[in-house]
Design a protein around this nucleic acid. Structure first.
Lengths: 241, 241
DNA sequence: GATGATTTGTACGTATGTATT
DNA sequence: CAATACATACGTACAAATCAT
């Protein structure tokens, strides 16, 4: 594998670890991964380097090595987040997780900058409420979101969310019975130190970043959110059938 | 901060380079990027580390530094891929790129394994045609896709695609006038060596992985595809308004 | 034009991580 | 496990080009 060279700022063992993870996800291996010596030969590296890769995956909870027996694949749960006009994370997940909750990490009032004001159809500098929230399923952090709401219309949103643990229910409490998702834009990037802390990720992990806009039934924006999903625990599903 | 690399396997400067590239793509910067000292402070690293990141991006043709003046953005390539029931990549992109084309990297006939057969509503072991394709905009590789088609119905799909450069037109040529996207599932992972080669990415880059199913108007599956997008050049947009 | 602030370029030193032998 | 060569990251200092005043 000539492509594996250390010139790009990514350690060989990390590239090999990612390759192994990929092979596991694609079903190429089942039960155990091949022996270290075989992998070393296949990747064209020293056995020590393969060991470093396996060690990293073990730390991340993907593999478990047993002396004399082999290295076993630990199945990890992955959650599907539906994205549609009627997206309700809490409802979509309730079938997959036994315990599902949202926590309020922080709240603040600030002034909308030009880009945010445009998205929420407000005047630049208009007051908005920012919520930092965390979603968990069965005790595992899945996503953290930063949401902005027009401050005039949703003054008590922070308290409402804190007590309800759900945007849908917080909206309902403030008199907004229904809302729809107008648009979602998905990208991906490396997890920031903040992401790692909040989501319990190892440094260098990947997050799916979704920017979304919700409106009321008259098309008036009620929430703009940037949500960061732990990419190895979550799939985003768009049903367009 | 030096400890980051130990846990991670991805060099700090590489993570910062990716982050800068992401910010450029998302339109956060325009014209120039912030000064090195400011970026260093913002990322919490030494100025040299930022310089290593900028240096890498300069080698890749994204940035150009001028002493005393600043660091200028050369390529600000960000393409939005719409995902909807009527997704037509070629149509959605034609407004954003001057030159847009699809190339056939390879084609093969194989037998559907259990998972693929289920997705295409075929018997396990049924013959399918696999296409490896690459999409470019203005000469820049945006995505590579592996697609499977029922071999019985779309025998000449490889030749048709090779000559048309588009799935939509290849389908039309084989008598399928129209089709719809039924579902799409999005995840993200590190770029494999193959991805790096095909998409011109640096090791450690991120790809958005979309698994999608297309059906004809009667709901019969016609194509299952796994598409790998260069995450720093592409945003996936779901319009649910 | 001169001055100082800003910004990128260069150099040296130190410590630690990475990968092979 | 040790030795080795190279990459990564920080720290400090100063030089050179540009820009606002």
């Amino acid at each position: 594998m000539a492509a594996l060279e250390r010139v790009n700022g990514v350690a060989l063992w990390r590239q090999i670890a990612d390759s192994i993870r990929q092979s596991i996800a694609s079903g190429e291996y089942s039960g155990t991964i091949p022996p270290e010596t075989l992998l070393a030969e296949r990747f064209g590296v020293n056995r020590h380097t393969v060991r470093a890769a396996v060690s990293a995956l073990s730390r991340e909870g993907v593999l478990r090595s047993e002396r004399g027996r082999g290295t076993f694949i630990i199945r990890q749960d992955s959650y599907v987040f539906p994205i549609s006009r009627r997206t309700r994370f809490s409802e979509g997940l309730s079938e997959q997780a036994r315990v599902f909750d949202g926590a309020l990490l922080g709240a603040d009032q600030e002034m909308a900058d030009a880009a945010l004001a445009r998205r929420l159809s407000l005047e630049a500098g208009a007051p908005v409420i920012r919520l930092e929230t965390l979603r968990r399923a069965d005790g595992i952090a899945l996503s953290r979101a930063t949401s902005w709401f027009p401050a005039g219309r949703f003054a008590g949103i922070a308290d409402a969310y804190r007590e309800e643990g759900s945007i849908t229910r917080a909206f309902r409490r403030l008199g907004l019975a229904d809302y729809v998702r107008r648009e979602t834009e998905v990208t991906a990037s490396h997890a920031s130190p903040d992401d790692c802390l909040a989501l319990g990720l190892s440094a260098g992990a990947i997050v799916l970043v979704a920017q979304s806009l919700n409106t009321d039934l008259d098309g008036v924006p009620v929430q703009y959110a940037v949500t960061r999903f732990a990419a190895d625990r979550v799939r985003l599903a768009m049903d367009t059938g």
